[in-house]
């Protein structure tokens, strides 16, 4: 084994760890934007999706550098097996184990996305949900392992990343978009559908003597078969 005693490997490990965390914060946030149907006017939805995919590729490269330099460095003894198998590292057993678990989950998400055309979409989505878990574990790994992450600028960066993704998670799970929740700006019609609250507003104010059955039946249709004529021009 070559004695790799140069401090630069260790510095690279620490630096790429921080960069990887920032990049995966961007990836998760952009994925949330895509899932919540953001875009379509000033920025295309497909552009956000492309950014999500491309930054993920870059983040994986930085993650690979982070892992390779950690293993190659002799300053801390981790061992190549500790990269994927949890709880085998002599150095910081639990924090390195969390990194290994996060890596395993990320590899699952990555490979399923590479094979997206061959994997059933429901399976891909199920696997993709685990990216939240992977991110959470990776943040704990950063806080427990990170030499720079516990004070000063490093801590500020970690907390900013954590706050960003926590906000994205809250937004994703609170504002769950319904199917086809919104046309893009490129829709040829661009017509707002008939508001559903019309019946509720009208009923108490106007006790119409006409046939109530007909109007309620018309309002109860799940959606109009054809676009309603625009009233306001």
């Amino acid at each position: 084994m070559i004695a790799l005693t140069s401090p630069y490997l260790w510095y690279t490990t620490r630096a790429t760890g921080l960069v990887t965390m920032v990049l995966f914060t961007l990836v998760v946030s952009l994925g949330t934007l895509v899932a919540n149907r953001v875009g379509g006017t000033t920025v295309g939805r497909f552009e956000l999706n492309e950014l999500h995919r491309t930054i993920a590729s870059v983040a994986i490269v930085f993650l690979a550098i982070h892992i390779i330099t950690t293993v190659a460095d002799s300053f801390v003894a981790t061992g190549p097996l500790a990269v994927v198998v949890p709880f085998v590292s002599p150095y910081k057993r639990l924090p390195v184990a969390l990194g290994a678990i996060a890596l395993d989950l990320m590899v699952a998400v990555w490979v399923s996305s590479l094979l997206k055309a061959r994997v059933a979409n429901a399976s891909w989505r199920f696997i993709h949900w685990f990216s939240w878990l992977a991110y959470a574990i990776a943040i704990v790994h950063a806080l427990l392992t990170g030499t720079d992450a516990r004070h000063g600028v490093g801590l500020v960066i970690v907390l900013a990343c954590l706050a960003t993704v926590a906000g994205a998670a809250a937004w994703r799970f609170v504002a769950r978009p319904t199917r086809a929740a919104g046309r893009t700006a490129l829709s040829p019609l661009g017509v707002e559908p008939e508001p559903r609250g019309v019946q509720r507003d009208r009923a108490p104010t106007r006790p119409a003597p006409g046939p109530a059955v007909e109007s309620s039946a018309r309002d109860a249709t799940p959606f109009p078969r054809r676009p309603q004529p625009r009233r306001h021009r």
């Binding site: 086809a180 919104g182 046309r183 490129l186 829709s187």
Partner: peptide, 13 residues
């Protein structure tokens, strides 16, 4: 957005 000549979006997206 990607194939505007082939695909149009209906009123419901």
């Amino acid at each position: 957005e990607l194939a505007p000549d082939l695909v149009h979006v209906d009123e419901w997206g």
